[in-house]
Design a protein around this nucleic acid. Sequence first.
RNA 1: GGGGACGUGGCGGAACGGUAGACGCGGCGGACUCAAACUCCGCUCAUGGAAACAUGGUGUGGGUUCGACUCCCACCGUCCCCA
Length: 846
Amino acid sequence: MTPPPSELPERYDPAGTEARWQSAWDAERAFHAEPVARDGEPSPLPDAPKAYVLEMLPYPSGEIHMGHVKNYTMGDVVAHHRRRTGHVVFHPMGYDAFGLPAENAAIRTGEPPATVTHRNIAAIRMQLRRLGFSIDWDTEISTADPGYYRWTQWIFLRFLERGLAERREAAVNWCPADQTVLANEQVVDGLCERCSAPVELRQLPQWFFRITDYAQALLDDMDLLDDWPERVLTMQRNWIGRSVGARVVFRLADDPDVVIPVFTTRPDTLHGATFFLMAPEHPLVPRLVEGRPERDAVMSYLAGAARTAVAERSSMERPKTGVSTGRHVTNPATGEQIPIWVADYVLMDYGTGAIMAVPGHDERDFAFARAHGLTVRRVIAPEGVPADAPLEEVWAGPGRLVNSGPLDGMTVDEAGDAMCALLAARGDGEATVGYRLRDWLISRQRYWGAPIPVVNCDVCGVVPVPDADLPVLLPHVDDYAPRGQSPLAAALDWVSTTCPACGAPARRETDTMDTFVDSSWYFLRYTAPDLTEGPFRREVADYWLPVDQYIGGVEHAILHLLYARFFTKVLHDLGLVGTREPFARLFTQGMIHHHGAKMSKSRGNVVPPDEIIQRFGADTLRLYILFMGPAADDAEWSDSGVEGQRRFLDRVWRLVRGLPGDVDPGRPSADDLAGDAAALALVRKAEATVAKVSQDIAERFSFHTAISAIQELVNHATRDGAEGARDTAPVRMASWHAARTTVSLLFPFAPHIASELWAAMGGDRLWEEPWPQADPEFLTADIVTIVVQVNGKVRDRADVSPDITDEDLIALALALPKVQAAMGGAEPARTIVVPGRLVNVVVGGT
RNA sequence: GGGGACGUGGCGGAACGGUAGACGCGGCGGACUCAAACUCCGCUCAUGGAAACAUGGUGUGGGUUCGACUCCCACCGUCCCCA
């Protein structure tokens, strides 16, 4: 079918080649892997080692961008390499298909989000196929598919049973433009991450996942994540924000039955707590001022705070505002009555929504005290400072306790422990651990998401929809625009239902789930994409999981990766999967820039992958996107850079086309090449390249250096081919060997042209061909160039046998005229020999 | 303010304590061509030199080492995360 080298077309035609091989792979389902769990069928597990290679699934916007190309090409290289090194490779693809863009389009055009989404998925799929990725298209999934979100809902119900999902009233971030609630993580600098509108706070009943219950587990299991980038782990650690401190109970001075607990990381400073602050959202605040003269002032302050962005409220630069309630709490350490103020820099979100203010030793409390004329007391004195020295500025450093009764004289650490013991003995608190991590707010007042599968019954309250009634399908609605509540609320027939518990009329929950919920378990669903018996089957999931290599953008370092870890732990604790961590090895890629900025429609600097494929071919694009630089770094797009990679593929094409003869003369042995130094050198180069490329792919994730190594090999082979019309047996063998090696190594990066050339050379199914092994016979040279240094400076080089003894090498080095000149007649004080690399002669007083 | 990453030719980058600048882009010169495109060959860190070669050179300043782009400290700059 494929012509031999000499009859290959003169010019490489990517479009034809790529289409041909893509349909060949399709026809034989070349990249499908078993086991996959199917209804009513057993799923026998293979003996071969497995490799689950996964890239973060795309949001189907309708067009892929260069970031996708980079992401999926990297994954594809890894997948191909693993496949050819004897692994059963699972490399699936899906779509994170719920979410706002499709819904916003629906609001504009009236077209149902499902229609928009299906069209976009078809477009994205086409583009991914055009790139020739070795994806298992049999296991494709979409999170917006009822067959998928049925199980998202099912998992929600398991969370609900475990008490890990709950509805509660909360001050939530409200985006006035999108008319929806946002998670804290979706608020950036007080603005909506998506539309950049200033975010407001509102009190609403909301659904939460209690991820904070897993804060410690998420921290502890990072020990299992050896192959994650350290910076991602650091970001997650900071995000979880574990801090050791104490819970301290304060009581109202005139009504000690009312307790207001606080969390503090500085229990040692309790004697210095001279006032008490509450967040404006604290539910107790209105009660404290009810019927008091301060009421109006406090209530208007609360209203103002609700309009102020959270980021602005907690900014260090902003003046500390607040208002007195006229009420007091008792400081449990001193027995003093200290005033309660409301201050907006205290966040309901953080700790308990109330703090003990220690102005002497906390910067913000100090600023507040100064602004409002409150008492500042020193309770810590740094070395050499007397206890009664006035505090001109805040002291947050170490020292010994003063003015603190029983704690006086202790260090900060000792005092912290002592105070915790004291509080515990009196029932006023205890040592505890606090986390910065908040519970995950999952409800969205939006249409295009998985409906939260519960029913609100006047009699029974919140009642879960029975498993058998799942999925709770999204109803048809006429108007997708949010009106402060979910568009689902307008689907009256859908909303009104009967209570599964008592049969009374009831109303469906109209909130849908955050799309991060959908993507927190998709890597499990791939193992059972069509299963209706359950979300997945444990033994199949346990065969594939954890993902051996996960690849995606660093922008997901915190949210998606933390949520997916959380889900996996919960599913593990439910006995549904064996692993506690979903992703064994993680790689985070850099972004592609153009004209110095991230590619975006608004900047008008987008280079559409399709256009590049059309001009140069998918193989060229794949090659270039990885050649741009270290995969983890951001990289700048360059049109001429793409052309360079196309030129390289043209060169490879001509290399194979120009091979001497049409029949592979077979793998050369050292004897075959004896006496032909050029042929031997070429085979050595080929073997060295095998070693380098294998290591770069498998161990270093260094694709650009792997490609450059193949380019070196091609340069070498081309040069030697041009040199000689020498058609001798050794040259023939070496040339074929170099070409075969080139094509074989090139395959993961440029699979179409490699398959074509491989077939021309008489090979078959390169995607199943065992990955080349470097032949050790050709990895050692018989001549090595040794660098000769004098005092660490290179003075000369010498070609010697690798077996030369150190003594001979030193003698040879010392005899070199340039070395003698550099030594200036001095005697060597010392010589250092690095075998096979260099000799360093040390002279003089260094 | 705290934490982290990174600073190398005209550009992207290579060099995992041992020849700094592989590979590619761009540039210059040449061959092929009536001419061009394509392709091929050569040169391309700086300074001096026709060349051989010499000297300097990896943000700045110190340190460790026989030897530092690489390790350590400080500073300057850029970027990221958290406040």
